[in-house]
């Protein structure tokens, strides 16, 4: 009976994860600044499992500039820099398929657990990996 469920839920903790706070802060940046100063507490997001496909990490030193990742990338995220024979990754366009990680012959690419990637500018330094 639905009433039983309703009453049980009325007296139990809501299912929603309160990330980053119970209610939307008036200013997110202000809230984050306060968290930085230790004045407010940030509720952590739901943890991600092992093998999560988050923001790409790039090991510049290992990269041999073979450009295979550029060939398989479905979203043209990766740009080749001919002068250094290295790549630049525009995470703003990334679809997180991880195909570049699979194809890389020297394992210079990896996927991290970072997924909070919102920024105001698609060329924001946090969204460019090189």
């Amino acid at each position: 009976m639905i009433l039983k469920v309703l009453m049980a839920q009325l007296f139990s903790r809501p299912v929603t994860n309160r990330f980053p706070a119970k209610y939307m802060p008036r200013s997110v940046t202000g809230f984050l600044a306060k968290v930085g100063q230790g004045k407010a507490k940030l509720v952590p997001p739901v943890p991600v499992p092992k093998g999560f496909r988050g923001k790409l990490a790039y090991d510049r030193e290992t990269c041999i500039g073979c450009q295979l990742c550029i060939r398989v990338c479905p979203a043209s995220v990766i740009m080749f820099k001919p002068e250094t024979k290295k790549i630049r990754i525009h995470v703003a366009r990334c679809t997180f398929c991880g195909q570049c990680v699979d194809v890389c012959p020297v394992d210079a690419l990896a996927m991290t657990e970072e997924f909070l990637l919102a920024a105001y500018d698609r060329f924001d330094p946090s969204l460019i990996v090189e």
């Binding site: 499992p49 092992k50 093998g51 999560f52 398929c97 991880g98």
Partner: peptide, 15 residues
Amino acid sequence: MDILEELTGNRVDYA
């Protein structure tokens, strides 16, 4: 959804 994320690394678009 959690199991899909666990097995594939993504909640949608499992690749």
